[in-house]
Every structure is written in structure tokens, then in C-alpha cells.
């Protein structure tokens, strides 16, 4: 019974990570690729962690598994946020219908306006794009 459960967990986790990799290849732009990798990749690794914890079975292994899954859930979004921000600032254009982030970054300080209380009119990101590409 336990073998069946862990096998199912491990296989579905591995398949999800395979889907993340295929998504990385097939998605049209960087941001959609990141979505595929961040989501499918995280759930995949969580399932594999669970499978390993249950297979090993000891209290210490379950504790390891719990801490590892906490680590993945906390770090993946942080890494995605930092990388997405860096990519946007370095001029990687998103393939999107609408981009409400366009022109909101200050080109020098990288401060980000909210568009609520308008700051002084800032030069858009487009100049940085031309400079870096």
C-alpha cells in the first residue's frame, strides 16, 4: 500500500517536472517560461520530497521532508520575483496583451512607481532596452 502511494507520488512529481522542462522549451517568452518552471517545478519537487519522506519513514526523515518542502515553497517565489524583475529591467520584452509595468521603472534608480500618486514624469524603460540589446 505504502509502496503504491510513494510510487504514485514520485511518478507524478517526476512527470510534473518533465512538464516544467517541456514548458521551458515550448512557452513563447521568458515570463511564461518562468511561470511553467516556477509552478510545475515546485509542485513536482514537493511530491518527490513527500515520496522520499514516506519511503524512508523515520521521524527524522519526515522532519527533513517537511523542512525541505517549506524551503522550496519559500524560496521559489523569491527567486522568481528577483529574476523576473532583473529580466524586465535588463530589457527582456514580455509577450503580453497588456503591460501595465511599462515605463513605471525609474531608469537610473530602478525605483518602481505605483501609478497611483504620479511621480515626476520619468523616462521609460525603452531607452534601457535599446542600450542593453
Amino acid at each position: 500500500m505504502i509502496v503504491f502511494v510513494t510510487g504514485l507520488l514520485a511518478l507524478s512529481g517526476a512527470l510534473l517536472m518533465l512538464i516544467a522542462a517541456v514548458g521551458l522549451l515550448r512557452m513563447p517568452d521568458f515570463y511564461t517560461r518562468m511561470q511553467a518552471a516556477a509552478k510545475a517545478g515546485t509542485l513536482g519537487i514537493l511530491l518527490i520530497v513527500a515520496a522520499t519522506g514516506i519511503t524512508l519513514g523515520s521521524v527524522s526523515a519526515l522532519l527533513h521532508a517537511f523542512l525541505a518542502s517549506l524551503f522550496f515553497v519559500l524560496t521559489t517565489p523569491v527567486a522568481a520575483h528577483l529574476l523576473g524583475r532583473a529580466a524586465y529591467l535588463s530589457g527582456v520584452r514580455p509577450w503580453v496583451l497588456q503591460d501595465e509595468l511599462a515605463g513605471r521603472y525609474h531608469t537610473q534608480t530602478h525605483e518602481l512607481g505605483s501609478g497611483r500618486a504620479p511621480t515626476a514624469s520619468l523616462p521609460g524603460i525603452d531607452q534601457a532596452e535599446q542600450a542593453s540589446s
Partner: peptide, 22 residues
């Protein structure tokens, strides 16, 4: 682009972590 490569590298690291766990 470089961010594309970084995200692929990150996923590869996760995959190796998965391999080690299994």
C-alpha cells in the same frame, strides 16, 4: 537571453535535487 538560461539552470538544479532525493 541570459535570464532564460538562468531559469533553465535553476530548473536543472531542482531536477538534480529530485534525482538525489529519489
Amino acid at each position: 537571453t541570459i535570464p532564460d538560461r538562468v531559469i533553465a539552470l535553476d530548473l536543472m538544479a531542482s531536477l538534480v535535487v529530485g534525482l538525489l532525493l529519489l
